[in-house]
Amino acid sequence: MSFFAFDDVEHFYGEPEPVPGARVSFAPDKLIAARERPAGRQVDRQPAGDEGLLVNEIATDVVQWPSSLWRVADLELMRPIPAARWLRCRAFTVMEQVPAWLVAGPHGDVVEWVITQTRTLTGAQADALAALSDDGEEALKRTLWARWLRDHHTGSPVGCALTTLNRVITEAARRVGPQLFGPDDEEEVDVLTDPAWLRAFGAAYTAALALGAPELLTPQENAVLARRWTTVFGSPVLPGR
């Protein structure tokens, strides 16, 4: 089984757009146009030989939360990448759309709930999360990661969800105001520095791990990790659960 993660038209270098039954082919001109837009000039139009449509063999290897996720088959491969779990394709056939939350694993629907709440986080909610005790979180987080890394050398128990959380809480904080940010001299950019919002991010992070990878800890331990988040937002109500 292989998966194609669709972001948006700006980052899609194929045609036609994915729908069940479509044969999607790599469109080099779309990739070249995307490279030229930020440069404001023409770029080398000679293909490097390794471009193509990126397909993942495992959904949790998708590196960015997609707007839609598709199961694909009949891959027309480009140059193979030894030992890689991703492939570059000239074309593939779209089989069906599957839930985008599969990129966070079998419990990704609960992780998606945490991301959705984080995306619209308010100052009052961040303050409420920050005011709650985080006793026990750090030790349990270390235990969870140690157990994960016993069998995995890379990646995350919830796929790209943790980096997605970092992005969406930054976006939420920017809507509140610039006073929540400060300079990062090394990167020469403004980063989130407000203590309450950083603690709120910690609550989202641990809740995503506890709810998205419950097999790594006991139910009681997972409840401690998710406690701050569920105290403020309650338990997720999801179809089929």
Rank of each mutant, 00 (worst) to 15 (best):
T120C: 13
L162S: 03
V94A: 13
W86V: 14
R119D: 08
R119K: 10
L140G: 09
R167T: 15
L121N: 01
R167E: 11
W145F: 11
G155D: 06
H107C: 10
T170D: 12
H152L: 05
R147Q: 09
G105M: 04
M78K: 15
T164F: 15
E112R: 05
S133I: 00
V111K: 06
A130S: 14
Q125L: 11
L129P: 01
T120W: 15
W101V: 15
W148Y: 08
H152W: 04
I115F: 08
A84Q: 08
P99F: 11
C89V: 10
F92Q: 02
G123K: 07
D151Y: 04
D135I: 15
G108R: 00
P178K: 03
D127Y: 00
E96Y: 05
R150W: 14
E112L: 14
W101D: 11
G182D: 13
R147A: 13
V114S: 02
V103T: 03
A131G: 03
L144S: 06
D151G: 04
I115P: 00
L77F: 08
D135A: 09
L132C: 07
R150Q: 13
P106C: 14
L87T: 12
W148N: 04
A126Q: 00
A100N: 10
G136H: 00
L180S: 04
D109Q: 12
F181N: 02
R90Q: 14
G108Y: 02
G177Y: 08
L129R: 14
M78D: 15
G155A: 10
R147E: 09
A131R: 06
T163Y: 10
R85N: 08
A84L: 04
E138S: 13
V168A: 11
M95Y: 02
T122K: 06
W86L: 15
C89S: 06
A100L: 15
N166T: 13
P99R: 12
K141G: 11
V103M: 06
G155K: 09
P183D: 13
S156A: 02
R147V: 14
I115Y: 04
L102F: 03
V110G: 02
E137Y: 03
D127F: 05
R79K: 14
Q97E: 12
V98H: 01
Q179H: 07
T154C: 14
R147Y: 11
D127C: 04
K141D: 08
V176K: 03
L121T: 05
N166F: 07
A84R: 06
L102M: 11
